[in-house]
Design a protein around this nucleic acid. Structure first.
Lengths: 144, 144
DNA sequence: AGTTTTATGTTAATCGGTGAACACAAGCAT
DNA sequence: ATGCTTGTGTTCACCGATTAACATAAAACT
């Protein structure tokens, strides 16, 4: 289970070292892709396969799902973790996530998300404000 | 069953000793996370798993659940109880809970909550005033 | 073909976290 | 009252992670 948040830096060569806490769980091969809300999603290879299975089952007839597939799949890249636990972030994904050198890695259950630090802080403040309202909604669903 | 309230202090290294009463029940590994109303939730590992099972099944497509997942999961940290019964509170959670050195630990059924002492006192006063009204509401649901 | 730039791999140094051990204070119970 | 448990504060030393710096390899361009 990937949880927690870590601040790291993207080195000048766009390499990002993964929090050592997560390395075992993440494994050697990962998939990075465009995420929602302008962050990047990073999945361990196994999880990625599980997800593409689901996505592949969506009806091709709807324009929405076609668009989403393109967004999600065409932006995906398989990367390998190097000997010191770093991954290489491709240019186009770095641009998409508007990443500077300071980034935040957030563990969300089965994936990690990469955020530009500044954007993460503002986003976080906004969800913290909404949290109580969100929780009520989820209470209805029976989570808490 | 975790009940009662205890005043403790957060030491300069952000360590918090758990009330000895609860230690057996809490076990060695706990999860701390952002809670509602600006307090922190602390779950024994087992309870935590029960909750994340539910949370993990929420649909990725809804912005609300994404937000809540980020709020709840990225804010979670697994901590170990040290040899003298203390846990370490990460910076970002200390900030979120607006904790000073004096805190209150409140037992709420299957979790404990960490509150800044001052904020706890005001909150408590407010719910004490509302108590009668709250009870009526619960009566409607059939609790009391 | 040679030179410069880009990519990748390896090593090193620093910084901070973490844990253990200890000492003291305070409260509770017998 | 006094002895034992619990909470708090401090010190130290160690280990490891992250980052920066360096070295090598590949590639691109002239």
């Amino acid at each position: 289970m990937l949880i927690g948040e870590h601040k790291h830096t993207l080195d000048p060569k766009k390499r990002l070292s993964l929090p050592s806490k997560w390395r075992k769980e993440l494994g050697k091969k990962l998939v990075i892709t465009r995420g929602l809300d302008n962050c990047l999603f990073v999945y361990p290879l196994k999880e990625w396969q599980r997800i593409t299975d689901k996505v592949g089952q969506l009806p091709l007839g709807q324009a929405d799902t076609r668009s989403f597939n393109r967004f999600f799949l065409s932006g995906a890249v398989e990367v390998e973790v190097d000997s010191v636990g770093r991954i290489l972030v491709p240019d186009f994904l770095k641009d998409f996530g508007q990443l500077d050198s300071k980034v935040v890695l957030a563990g969300i259950h089965d994936r990690i998300e990469i955020w530009d630090e500044e954007r993460w802080e503002t986003y976080k403040r906004s969800i913290e404000k909404q949290a109580d309202a969100l929780a009520e909604k989820l209470g209805d669903i029976g989570v808490l």
